[in-house]
């Protein structure tokens, strides 16, 4: 995955709580066997009507938000199904950063593993950003090293992140390689529990 540290991008606000992964990527698009190409289907049922026409009232269809790379949303973002197609779709569409007051556990894990930084801010801070971001072209600067989110007119917030996830995102590590480099410990565990070696 791509390392991430400092990032500046246009913000798109979706002022809803409990956005579930069925909304982020509806089930009819889970049948592909690739990781790529899901961006065109992100928020499909909100973006398109039953006949496949764009819904003009949905913010992602507003050309003024076409360049957005940062998504701000309500609490419990990514709840529901474990489908990793959700972060794949968000990333493929162009969102590298998500900002919300809270996330569902599985979605949060899945995001980190794809190099998406899911920033947790307070309800108040998110409310402020949802307001400011309703003006098209609003930009935020994210600094993972410093764990900060700033804008150009005085907004500054700091976020918490697990130090291990932070390191993974900063370095763009492939987790399987990291684990396999310590394979000896897995072998020892198996020897102890199963009395047998598997590699």
């Amino acid at each position: 995955m791509e390392p991430i540290n400092q990032f500046t991008g246009v913000v798109c606000p979706i002022n809803r709580a409990n956005i579930d992964t069925d909304q982020i990527i509806p089930k009819q698009f889970l049948k592909r066997i690739e990781r790529q190409g899901f961006g065109q289907f992100v928020f499909y049922n909100w973006r398109f009507d039953d006949d496949g026409n764009k819904r003009e009232d949905f913010i992602l269809n507003d050309p003024k938000f076409a360049d957005a790379e940062i998504l701000v949303a309500g609490e419990n973002f990514g709840c529901g199904s474990s489908r990793e197609h959700a972060p794949w779709a968000l990333l493929d569409y162009g969102f590298r950063i998500i900002i919300a007051p809270s996330y569902a556990d599985i979605f949060y894990n899945n995001s980190v593993k794809n190099g998406i930084l899911a920033v947790k801010l307070t309800d108040e801070e998110v409310k402020t950003l949802l307001g400011r971001a309703s003006v098209p072209g609003f930009k935020l600067h994210i600094n993972l090293e410093e764990q900060s989110v700033t804008d150009d007119s005085g907004f500054t917030a700091y976020f918490d992140i697990d130090p291990y996830w932070k390191k993974m995102l900063l370095n763009g590590w492939d987790e399987i390689s990291v684990t396999l480099s310590a394979e000896e410990r897995i072998r020892q565990f198996e020897e102890k529990v199963y009395g047998k070696q598997y590699s």
Partner: peptide
């Protein structure tokens, strides 16, 4: 517990998973 596809790959390859 449920896991994402990256974690499925990780478990297939290592039979382990990183968990807090």
């Amino acid at each position: 517990f449920g896991i994402g596809t990256s974690e499925v790959e990780h478990v297939l390859a290592t039979q382990t998973i990183w968990q807090k």
